[in-house]
Structure formats: structure tokens, C-alpha cells
């Protein structure tokens, strides 16, 4: 299954494109994160050919809904309201640019050419990002366990995380709040789908682990050994005390 051509193509494409986008403030972080093998990853393959034209109004609606109900978030962001964040669900073929400006909040699809204008990037699986958005998980905990990667202006990411966490965002409810009589069944269906996705995700991750674990362990042990060797060699050859520059001059 892992060798299916579509999957490999998608992975390669993601890896390549993030390398190209790595010249700006936010680098090629996606390379080091392996997307979890999950329904989102598979679903993402279906999403790949969907033209932006169709996604754009959806994103606008999401942002309008959030902006309407969570003004406090923008206040908390303070001077970071104009910061452009690259939000990168690593298991989707698309990435987003977020600008949480109170007057005109924007969520757009990131083109390769757009990546450099982001001053900070947040990368993780879609479900991890949604959990973070809704305050179900602690951002630090995600980061400690390496399920979240941040790049660029760390303080901006911390500000965004704190601002988002200070709101009680329920993304589905927020979007459907204006859906009228359809809201309730739609919400139920959406939540059911999310729950299923989560459960299937856990099952698939288990499967992935079972298949890949032995190989991964071997590779990691080898990498660690090589790194260790390299470190000890470089340490051995460099003088332990060396003269730091007399002046670390800074212009005032």
C-alpha cells in the first residue's frame, strides 16, 4: 500500500515544493516531518485537484465566521495582527497563509511564491492543528512530542497560539452558526465525520507503526551512531578554550 504510485508522487511533490519555498524567513521544515498515515492524508489526495476557485469562498466563510465570534483573539494578538503565518497541515497537499488582522482577517491558499512573505510557519497534521485551534491539546505538549514544528518568528507563533487558546473556538459550530435549519444536522454529520476520521487515523497510525517501526528503529540507531561519531570527532579536534572576539560590537 505504501508503494502506491499516487502516494509516493504526493509525498515527493510535497517534499520538493517545500524545499523550493525554503528561501524566506520560514525554511524547509516540512522535510523533517513525515505526514501521519491517516484518512486526512488519503482525503488530501482527492483534494489536490480541487481548484482554488472552489476553496476560496469556503476559506473566506471560515474566516468571517471566526472573526465575527472571536474578536478577543485579535486584541490578544496585539502587534502581531499584521503578521503573515504559514499554516501547513503536512498531510494535505495545500498550505494556508493566515493574517489575523481584526479589520480584514485573511486565510488564503499559499502558492509557492507566497511562502517567503510568511514570517512564521506552523506545521503539523490537520487533526493536530484543529485540536490546537480548538484548545483540545496543549501546544507545548504537541511540540515537546515533535508533532508540531514551528519556524521563523517564534514569538509570533507563541502570540498566535496564546490568542487562539484564549478563545473557545469550535470550528464546526462557528462555521455552521449561520446555516439556519440545516445547522443542526450538518453539525452532527460533521462531528461524526471528524470522530470517524480521528478513530480511523488512530487505527492507521497503529498499522503504520507496526509496519515501519523495526525499520525506523534501525535507521535512527544508525543516524545516532553517525552523529555521535561526527560530534566526538569535531570536539576532539577543536581547542576547548578559544579566544572569543574582544568586541561583539553592536550599533546603537
Amino acid at each position: 500500500m505504501l508503494n502506491s504510485p499516487t502516494m509516493t508522487d504526493f509525498l515527493n511533490e510535497t517534499l520538493d515544493s517545500s524545499e523550493q519555498g525554503g528561501r524566506g524567513a520560514v525554511g524547509a521544515g516540512r522535510r523533517s516531518m513525515v505526514p501521519p498515515f491517516s484518512p486526512v492524508l488519503l482525503g488530501g489526495l482527492l483534494l489536490a485537484p480541487v481548484p482554488d476557485l472552489l476553496l476560496r469562498p469556503l476559506l473566506r466563510a471560515v474566516m468571517a465566521a471566526v472573526a465575527k465570534q472571536h474578536q478577543g483573539m485579535f486584541e490578544r494578538l496585539g502587534s502581531y495582527a499584521d503578521t503573515v503565518f504559514l499554516v501547513d497541515p503536512i498531510d494535505l497537499p495545500i498550505r494556508f497563509l493566515l493574517q489575523a488582522n481584526a479589520k480584514q482577517p485573511k486565510l488564503t491558499i499559499a502558492r509557492e511564491a507566497d511562502a517567503p512573505q510568511a514570517t512564521a510557519a506552523i506545521r503539523g497534521s490537520l487533526l493536530a492543528l484543529i485540536d490546537l485551534l480548538e484548545g483540545r491539546v496543549d501546544g507545548d505538549a504537541l511540540f515537546f512530542s515533535r508533532r508540531l514544528l514551528i519556524e521563523g518568528d517564534t514569538e509570533a507563533v507563541v502570540a498566535l497560539r496564546n490568542a487562539v487558546d484564549g478563545e473557545e473556538i469550535h470550528i464546526i459550530d462557528d462555521i455552521l452558526v449561520r446555516a439556519g435549519p440545516l445547522a443542526r444536522p450538518a453539525r452532527r454529520a460533521a462531528k461524526h465525520l471528524l470522530r470517524l476520521t480521528r478513530r480511523a487515523g488512530a487505527d492507521m497510525a497503529m498499522l503504520q507503526n507496526a509496519l515501519l517501526q523495526p525499520a525506523m528503529e534501525r535507521i535512527e540507531a544508525q543516524t545516532a551512531a553517525v552523529d555521535h561519531l561526527r560530534q566526538s570527532m569535531s570536539r576532539g579536534s577543536s581547542p576547548r578554550r578559544r579566544r572569543a572576539p574582544r568586541t561583539l560590537a553592536v550599533q546603537e
Binding site: 578554550r241 579566544r243 574582544r246 568586541t247 561583539l248 560590537a249 553592536v250 550599533q251 546603537e252
Partner: peptide
């Protein structure tokens, strides 16, 4: 001798820095 000097704190900067007086 072989020790770097610093005065950053007094200039409102990182304590480890050396700020040239002439730069002010």
C-alpha cells in the same frame, strides 16, 4: 589576557555584549 570583555547591560543590551562607546 584571553578573556572577552562586556558592557552590554549598561547600554540596555544583552549583558554579554560589548558596545563600543564611540558607536553612541
Amino acid at each position: 589576557g584571553d578573556v572577552p570583555l562586556a558592557n552590554g547591560y549598561l547600554h540596555g543590551r544583552e549583558g554579554r555584549l560589548w558596545v563600543e562607546a564611540a558607536a553612541e
